[in-house]
């Protein structure tokens, strides 16, 4: 028997259909927006839409919304390490050439 507070949450079919429709619309929007010239914001918009889609999939389809705290912490920790990987690598590559190399 499971604890009362550990009971499985069963989402309705309707909520899953809504999430699917939102994901499909977002795919269409990101494809259409890519043709517009937004300057540097093209990348920002594309990645923002992708992040929203990721959140929808993770929270609803992957049930993070109903997961216990330990699972949520592990997922957040994973994303934190990914951010370190990307950001700290780019601090090198993005700033090369700002200062000259001594003796060169």
């Amino acid at each position: 028997m499971s604890d009362p507070h550990e009971q499985t949450h069963i989402d309705s079919v309707g909520s899953y259909v809504k999430i699917l429709l939102a994901l499909l619309v977002a795919t269409g929007v990101t494809t259409a927006v890519a043709r517009l010239d937004l300057g540097a914001f093209n990348t920002v918009v594309a990645l923002s839409i992708a992040s929203v889609k990721m959140l929808l999939v993770a929270l609803f389809f992957m049930h993070i919304r109903h997961s216990n705290k330990l699972t949520k912490l592990v997922v957040a920790g994973g994303l934190l390490w990914l951010a370190i990987l990307l950001l700290l690598t780019m601090t090198d590559f993005a700033t090369r050439g700002i200062l000259g190399v001594p003796g060169k």
Binding site: T27, T30, T31, A34, R35, L36, D37, L38, N42, T43, A46, L47, I49, A50, K53, M54, V57, A58, F61
Partner: peptide, 17 residues
């Protein structure tokens, strides 16, 4: 699926304009 959600804009869409 999530991996593809990021691959699609990064490979197909960015800087298309």
């Amino acid at each position: 699926d999530v991996i593809w959600i990021f691959l699609f804009p990064l490979l197909y869409l960015i800087d298309r304009h």
